[in-house]
Simulated scan of single mutants.
Amino acid sequence: MSTGRWTDAENDLIVADYFAMLADDHAGRPINKAEHNRALQERTGRPRGSIEYKHQNISAVLLGLGEDWLRGYKPAFNFQNSLVDSVARWLTINSAWMNRPPTHRLQPGTYEAAQLWIGPAPTLKNEPPPEALDRMLGMARKFDIAGRDERNRKLGEAGEERVLEYERATLASSGRQDLAKRIRWVSKEDGDGAGYDISSFEPNGAARLIEVKTTNGGWDRTPFHISRNELAVADVERESWCLVRLWNFAREPKAFELRPPLDRHVTLAPTSFLASFQ
């Protein structure tokens, strides 16, 4: 029976097995975890408990990468760096995984589309952040998770649509169907550049300018990109601008709101510079 550190070949085997189970889970197919474990025991020579714990390690890596993970394997954060590399290799080879359309896309106007859990921002919660927070954030920076999510147009559009329907339903339930009809999906109708995605209203008629940031994974602290223009608009329109952060979108979308000034809630770090010739 094998002991000691897992090899790259063993990591690649168990990562592929994990994603096979995750794909079945997303498709609503039953998963026989014991059968998967036995197959890995035969191929790697590792004991059952070691394989179970490695699956938990993979959940932790996916949490740090802003991806969805199997709920039956609670994240265990003391993983090897080689496991992170193995997960990154799998995602690179299977690039369609991160660009897949949302599995739970809902019809606009439905009751389900109107439901959205809005909670406190991570900085306002009493609970501590996940274990190994610095390591998780380091992983997100190394693999530019924020940039990846920003480039995923299917994910971004689906998140905006979910918030759009939530806004319409909220105003309608407040007796303001007149305002609900006037909500505009600005980023889709006019294109990017306004500094917000949705033009909505408060029940009293006040403007509500919403920028939406969406992540598939189940970690509310996953970093995200925000443009210089969005920050400028947030500063000018402080009374009406807000950022709705959607997370856990692959499972059961949850959200929280951030109001300007954003540096009360997050650390803003420059990620690129404009180079001009003198």
Rank of each mutant, 00 (worst) to 15 (best):
V186I: 12
V186E: 08
V186L: 09
V186W: 03
K188Q: 13
E189R: 09
D190K: 12
D192E: 14
I198N: 05
S200I: 08
F201W: 05
F201K: 10
N204S: 08
N204T: 03
A206P: 00
R208H: 01
I210W: 02
I210T: 03
E211A: 13
V212L: 01
V212A: 01
K213P: 06
K213D: 09
T215P: 05
T215C: 13
T215F: 05
G218T: 11
W219L: 15
R221T: 12
T222Q: 12
P223W: 15
F224V: 15
F224H: 14
H225E: 14
H225P: 08
I226Y: 11
I226D: 14
I226R: 15
I226P: 12
I226M: 15
S227H: 14
R228I: 15
E230L: 11
E230R: 07
L231H: 07
L231M: 13
L231K: 11
A234R: 03
A234M: 06
A234L: 03
E237P: 00
E237S: 05
R238E: 02
R238N: 03
E239M: 07
E239W: 00
E239F: 00
E239L: 06
S240Y: 02
S240G: 00
W241I: 08
W241K: 07
C242D: 00
C242T: 01
L243N: 02
L243Q: 02
R245T: 00
L246I: 08
N248T: 02
F249I: 10
R251P: 00
R251S: 11
F256R: 10
L258A: 03
L258D: 01
P260C: 11
P260A: 13
P260H: 05
P261H: 05
